[in-house]
Amino acid sequence: MTTTAAEYDLALPRKRVAAGILFFDEHDRVLLVDPIYKTPWEIPGGAVEPDEAPRAGARRELKEELGLDLEPGRLLGVDWTPPRPDRSEGIVFFFNGGHLTAEQHAAIQLQPDELRAYAYVPLDEIDRRLIPLLTRRVHASAQARAQGTTAYLENGNPT
């Protein structure tokens, strides 16, 4: 029996995809959020849904979590993560959110089913709130933002 191109395509492995947005304040501190459903802090964002572009997923997650409907800025980084015993491999996209205006900041409404709190944290202190993988991602994305480049990472490490 001959396999069609569509059948071949549908049989290919699928990867988890997530997207987040990095916001900074005037002191270049990064905005972190404290999820209710897990212990470590995160950046705004989450899983990209089927048939949804990563940028659209980041925007949707931002609206769901913080009540802000903002278009993500340029791509800061992409990270491939290998499979683990409890997770399949994945790809995560990081977009620049820039600085929130005073009006935007005042409009933040935490989704009570998802987030406990948010805080701006200096880059040299984020390791106290984030898992090491996310700490590496945020540092690489912040560096790419400062340099006007895009970071490619594997398991949070620049290649």
Rank of each mutant, 00 (worst) to 15 (best):
I131M: 08
D79W: 02
R129W: 15
D86F: 15
Q111W: 06
I126F: 04
L100E: 03
G45L: 04
V17P: 02
H105K: 15
E49K: 11
D79V: 03
R16Y: 08
M1Q: 14
V30A: 03
G45V: 01
F94M: 07
D9A: 14
V33T: 12
R116I: 05
A6G: 05
W41T: 05
T2Y: 08
V30H: 00
E89T: 07
G57F: 00
P13Q: 11
N157Y: 13
R128K: 15
V138D: 00
L133F: 15
R59I: 02
L62C: 05
G67E: 07
Q111G: 09
R128A: 14
A144V: 01
H105C: 05
L110E: 10
P50V: 08
E61I: 03
E65P: 01
A146H: 05
H99Y: 09
E7M: 12
H139V: 07
K63E: 15
L32D: 00
P50C: 06
G67Q: 13
H105Y: 12
G20R: 01
W80M: 11
D69A: 15
F95D: 00
V17C: 04
A5M: 13
P13Y: 15
T159K: 15
K38Y: 07
E52F: 08
D9G: 08
K63S: 14
A117T: 07
G98A: 03
A119K: 12
L100C: 08
Y118S: 03
D113P: 02
Q104T: 04
G97W: 00
A56E: 13
P40V: 13
L22F: 04
W41D: 01
E64H: 12
K15E: 05
A5S: 14
Q147G: 13
E7V: 06
N155Q: 12
D79L: 02
Q147W: 10
A102K: 12
Y120T: 09
Y8E: 14
A5Q: 12
A142S: 05
R60A: 05
G73H: 02
V121T: 12
L134M: 10
P44S: 11
T4A: 08
G97C: 03
L134P: 00
G90D: 04
G98R: 02
G77I: 01
L31Y: 03
G97E: 00
T149Y: 09
K38C: 10
T159Q: 15
E42T: 15
T3N: 07
Y8F: 15
E26H: 15
Y37D: 11
D28F: 14
R16N: 11
R129E: 09
I108R: 02
R14A: 10
R145N: 04
A58L: 06
L110Q: 06
R145D: 03
E114K: 13
I36K: 14
L130K: 01
D28S: 13
M1N: 14
Y120V: 05
P112A: 15
I36V: 10
A102N: 09
E64P: 02
I43T: 01
P83K: 05
D124Q: 14
T150G: 04
D25Q: 06
T150Q: 09
A119V: 05
E114G: 06
Q104C: 04
L133G: 07
V17T: 11
I21W: 00
R137Q: 12
R29S: 14
R55A: 14
G156L: 02
V30C: 03
R84I: 06
D124S: 07
